[in-house]
Design a protein around this nucleic acid. Sequence first.
RNA 1: CGGGGCGUAGCGUAGCCCGGUAGCGCGCCUGCUUCGGGAGCAGGAGGUCGCUGGUUCAAAUCCAGUCGCCCCGACCA
Length: 489
Amino acid sequence: MADDKKLTTRDADFSAWYNEVVLRSELADYSPVKGCMVIRPNGYGIWERMQRQLDDMFKATGHQNAYFPLLIPESFLHKEAQHVEGFAPEAAVVTHGGGKKLEEPLIIRPTSETIIYTMFAKWVQSYRDLPILMNQWANVVRWEMRTRLFLRTTEFLWQEGHTAHVSEAEAEEEARKMLGVYRDFMEGWVAMPVVTGRKTDSERFAGALRTYSCEAMMQDNKALQAGTSHNLGQNFAKAFDLKFQAENGATEHAWNTSWGVSTRMVGGLVMTHGDDTGLRVPPLLAPIELVIVPIYRTPDEQTLVLEAAERIRKSLGDWDRREPARLRIHVDTREGMKPGAKYYEWELRGVPLRLEIGPRDLASNQGVLVRRDTREKRPVSLGILGEEVSDTLSRMQRDMLAAALDRREANSVRARIDYGAFKELMEGKGGFVYAGWCGDAACEAQIKDETKATIRCLPDEEFQSATKPTECLKCGRPSTVEALWARAY
RNA sequence: CGGGGCGUAGCGUAGCCCGGUAGCGCGCCUGCUUCGGGAGCAGGAGGUCGCUGGUUCAAAUCCAGUCGCCCCGACCA
């Protein structure tokens, strides 16, 4: 069945396309438990590279890793009023252990603010103990009604940064700084452009003073919230008695931030870069950057070509690329599979570069280098292969970001738009709409109700339109702030 | 929780109306020939037809119940 080998196209059914890409490129698979997924080596390899880079960035900004336990007393959740309201419905509760009913039920963390600030309170006495800049890599569980691979699963992997500061200004600076770190990572590594900004009250994290987010546009023109950073104010400090003695002797509550990104970013990567042939992984995150496919007919040719492939792998692997570390290369030596079949498979898996080498190439000391993103195919002399591969990978990383940025801008509307046209746009092809907002939550709610579009964020200055909108998209009253509207995941 | 769909070999499915030998494609194993864009031939392995109960001489098929999954809507990173 030739058709069986082709993916559903993005045009025909974006959602089906996404599921097929994730399953067939072996990023993940469904687990026996509803809403849970297994992250397979291909997917986990991408996550590991995300983790490594982000971890470096967190360390570079002064944070340290720690680990807090999975199980939290249920009562902790109730100590902060908004927080319990936000998370109680989706908390998984452990009622039995060791064959007995527990005196107090435990919850499986949906996020760790409660346990972390409880511990911070124990560790902090003086302003000299601040700031605390901590991060943990962990799994969390949220009982979601509807789940999708990577985008929303019952259990997911993430990092949660938690900090405590002496002042609101310092906490605000931290929250903004980490949002910037996320943005740098998403653009520089995921090659996924994001709009940063502040969340409205209705979209704010339960218990936060202010929430900031990175919003990316997927290929179906829907928004994906790819990372969030919260200024928690003193809400948790007050709820968990996190106090310190200030320089002037007064006792004050600390100011907290928390920030996180999750395996959801892998889904964002798929929906940003994937095409109808499958996945396209940005080079910096690709577990394999270059796959070598040997081509041969006779046993003699096989020996010749495989030896050459191994030689190339070794010399490129040893080749001292300055950045970022060694090339990640794989030689596909599988027998009984034609080269063409291998091409399709590696394209499905999104490996950035492919080197085809056959007897004819070797005779002229060259190979054929193929880019996954543009499908550009060109002969490259083996003598300069290291430079060529390295340059091409850097170029691809930049090109993929540029392409994603072009696509986003082509599907963004900044011109004045009346509500009827807006509604039509949201029901049709969708996209990002920058428009005025009066600031009234009622307008926001009504728009959501009627169009399913929400305010993704109130964009930061650099994302705001040159001409400020003057009136509210919905009610026509004077606009107080520019808002980014879109349907979202 | 509402709406829709589906549970038959690893995957995709036919058979179900009208009860009677479980069939096909892909994949997998072995061998030979192949190999510059999804290989061909030959042989082979693999099934408590989601589960429970009922009707019947006989159930994948009919009836009742039950469990699970996927998709679309109301909550969320």
